[in-house]
Amino acid sequence: MEIVLALAIGILAGSGIYLLLRPRTFQVIMGLSLLGYAVNLFIFGMGRLRTGAAPVIDAARGSDPALYADPVPQALVLTAIVIGFATTALFLVVLLASRGLNGTDHVDGRESEKP
């Protein structure tokens, strides 16, 4: 399970960084989103991987911490997802404004001289 998660994070982060370095704003925003997913999975993984363990204490299962998953990273992921969502939406607006003002989707607002 660890290797699958690690591979997933690696592939997402790698694709994200590649897209981030591309010249089109749409590629940049896709790169940011993929990188965001990778980071969220990474935070999740930092709470150690457990299957079949709930993060919320259940009266039926008792209060032994070994029975439960670490709740803190899950709360952090939630916060990170919300913040990432908002900033992506904001960046989308800026992207559209730039496209409207300059007539191009290049990140510098103009096409590079090289063909």
């Binding site: 704003t25 940049v28 980071v39 969220n40 990474f42 935070i43 990273p73 990170a80 960046f91 510098d108």
Partner: peptide
């Protein structure tokens, strides 16, 4: 808009690195 877009991208990437750092430290 142009300067702002660069500013936003740089800071969004920095925020993602911040998250990785916080997660590792936790």
């Amino acid at each position: 808009v142009k300067a702002g877009m660069h500013y936003i991208v740089v800071n969004l990437v920095a925020s993602l690195i911040f998250l990785i750092a916080a997660a590792i430290i936790y």
